[in-house]
Amino acid sequence: MHLRKFANPWWLLCGAVAGGLAWAVTLPIWAAAVIGVIIWLTAVLVFGFLFPSSAPTAPGPPTAAPEPVADPDAECARRARAAAASFAEAAAPLAHGPLGERVSRMLWRVEEIAASIAHLAGRTHELAALAGALAQDPYQRERAHRVAARLAEVRHRMHAATGDLAAAVRRLREAVPSPQAVPDTAALDRLAAELEDVGYGVDIGENMVAEFLGPEPPPVPGASAR
């Protein structure tokens, strides 16, 4: 590839012109030839090695678009909705039996928890944006740390509550394997009480968010997600 630089016709022409001009001013032929060679080699050195022109490269194949980064908060809300749907499916055969009122109360609480988690999933994005904006101001760094700590706590409550909802489906099926089976009423009572605690924990998360973003009513259970 380097040999091609010495054979570049433009640089050869530069050397020839320089030698011709030197001979035209009555210099000896050998001196004109030396000048021509010097000019030619100088052109090769300067334009071929010191400042080479980059040849255009053919465009490569288009790169694939990067995979979208999963949103853990949105995924948490999706799993909470799925758990609530599974709980409703498991509770449906019991709705009209002797356990109907008790199971309906638990079902309402499960749907409320899932709706609150979905609501919090959107509010956490606002809280994260607030923490990022405050962190840019040197005088607001302390408040930014408080917001970030609240955000971490809210997310912890969201994910913990989602896991509790998934576990509630399994526990309901264990307490009442079928509509004809003898229900484990003690297990149902424990499950109902624990669901109340889960809902209370999610409500605390709502209050934490409202502390910095202001209150916003969560969606009604069963309403379509925004």
Rank of each mutant, 00 (worst) to 15 (best):
W40Y: 15
T42A: 15
V44N: 06
V44W: 07
G48L: 09
F51W: 08
P52E: 12
P56V: 08
P56C: 04
A58I: 02
P59F: 09
G60R: 06
P61Q: 09
P61A: 14
P62K: 05
T63C: 00
A64H: 12
A65H: 10
P68Y: 08
V69D: 07
C76E: 08
C76T: 15
C76F: 09
R78K: 11
R79L: 11
R81H: 02
A82L: 04
A83H: 00
A84K: 07
A85C: 03
E89G: 08
E89C: 01
A92R: 12
P93R: 00
P93I: 00
A95V: 09
H96W: 02
P98N: 05
R105L: 10
M106G: 04
M106W: 03
M106L: 05
L107W: 15
R109W: 07
A115V: 02
H119G: 13
L120V: 05
L120W: 00
L120Q: 05
L120F: 03
L120R: 04
T124G: 01
L127K: 13
L127Q: 12
A128Y: 05
A128R: 11
A128S: 09
A129E: 05
A129Q: 09
A131Y: 07
A135N: 08
A135C: 10
P138D: 05
Y139D: 11
Y139V: 13
R141L: 14
E142F: 15
A148H: 06
R150T: 14
V154G: 11
H156T: 12
H159A: 13
A160F: 06
A160V: 03
A161L: 08
V169C: 10
R173I: 10
P177A: 13
S178T: 05
S178R: 07
S178P: 04
